[in-house]
Design a binder for these strands. Sequence first.
DNA 1: CATCGCCTTTTGTCTAGACATGAGCGTCCG
DNA 2: CGGACGCTCATGTCTAGACAAAAGGCGATG
Lengths: 226, 226
Amino acid sequence: MNGTLHDRIRTDFETRILSGELAPGDRLPTEQALMAHYGCARMTVHKALSPLAAAGLIERRRKAGTFVARPRAHSMVLDIPDLAAEVAARGQAYAYRLLGRTLRAADASQSAMLELDGVHTADGRPLAAEHRLVAAAVAPGIETADFARQSPGAWLLAHVPWSEAETRITAAAATAAEATTLGVAKGAPLLCVARRTWRAGRLVTLVRQAFVADAYELVARFGPRG
Amino acid sequence: MNGTLHDRIRTDFETRILSGELAPGDRLPTEQALMAHYGCARMTVHKALSPLAAAGLIERRRKAGTFVARPRAHSMVLDIPDLAAEVAARGQAYAYRLLGRTLRAADASQSAMLELDGVHTADGRPLAAEHRLVAAAVAPGIETADFARQSPGAWLLAHVPWSEAETRITAAAATAAEATTLGVAKGAPLLCVARRTWRAGRLVTLVRQAFVADAYELVARFGPRG
DNA sequence: CATCGCCTTTTGTCTAGACATGAGCGTCCG
DNA sequence: CGGACGCTCATGTCTAGACAAAAGGCGATG
């Protein structure tokens, strides 16, 4: 596919496996045989097949050989887009409006957290309500940040690196407060995205975004397009 | 981390970047310098840094060098679990009940599709309503498959390889039909997962699962744990 | 001053080998 | 017959080098 030889070898087997031409359990040629077939060194063959093994598409055992892996519980790539960019791509005007800002002092259970409530809008129409906690100690400077022009999420992305994140996606009925903020009826369905983000084991931020159901969707992909 | 040298070099920089010790834009040593530092050949250094570049953690430019990448619109790994396994892991009894089965003949716009309606249950309680279309030509044998014991999704996973999939996640209010199937009130929030799956460019199946909001959530992760 | 072209640095790919590792498999011996 | 041993094969890791390609830097030239 790409110009390089090991990319060609890799995509060769990738497509043959994904198309079903090579079924799970089938044995692939040995590296020796592939050297001869493609007329290259063993390192090149190895460099081609290693990523497939890492991706779980094939399984390699010494002495036994290389086999097409059985399809397991698959995972897809979920794009977590920048809301501002997403809205702008739709040709709408994005804005974040800060609704509340409270500093919660540290107590026995956790360190000081800045509590931020706001709403993301597209062309002035509410898109999502956001409730966020930010660990003040891990995000120096956030207490003086201006969220009139930039959402807390964008500020954090630019200022605080993170190493780990977990996102939970659920549906929920709008509470009275959410209904008011978003301009929908109480009980209306919302797509809720709750994310916790850590840096070096310490919680950086905890955010819950409630999207108006018919105004937003998440997309996850699996496939050669990346 | 792992015993191998290139794994050690890779995790070295991985942790230094993710911990923030190396900030976005920082330049990494050249491969020459790393050869000297680790006392190994350049291929070994290259093998260590290449995956980091592929993962988007670093950015490499000829002549300029290697730099820590700025965090971009990040993507996470979304686990699409096998429903049966998921329910079993919670200690509940999983079942799929087929509610409707219709063969739609081919027409000008598309080939023959088998239409399947069903409901996934945990301990007898409805968990999700499923509406699925399967391309009969791409899934030979599905017309005689027995869905009393196995859901169409599980059957397809075992019998038809796929190369590409796209999942859209939304929230929606339960229609009257869905409310009846799931035993919830009309208008109750549902987490909807709509997935299209292709094999070699041809549509294999198209499925829409509507989950009872408080009985299900999707989890996506990003981090060194994989 | 601007621009073109050349040089150098740095990464990308590949080779031909070496040794290590581990698993399958047969053999030998009890 | 069965288990322990050792052989062999296939993959895993690594080396020292080669050439290619891209892009920054710099000087010559207009």
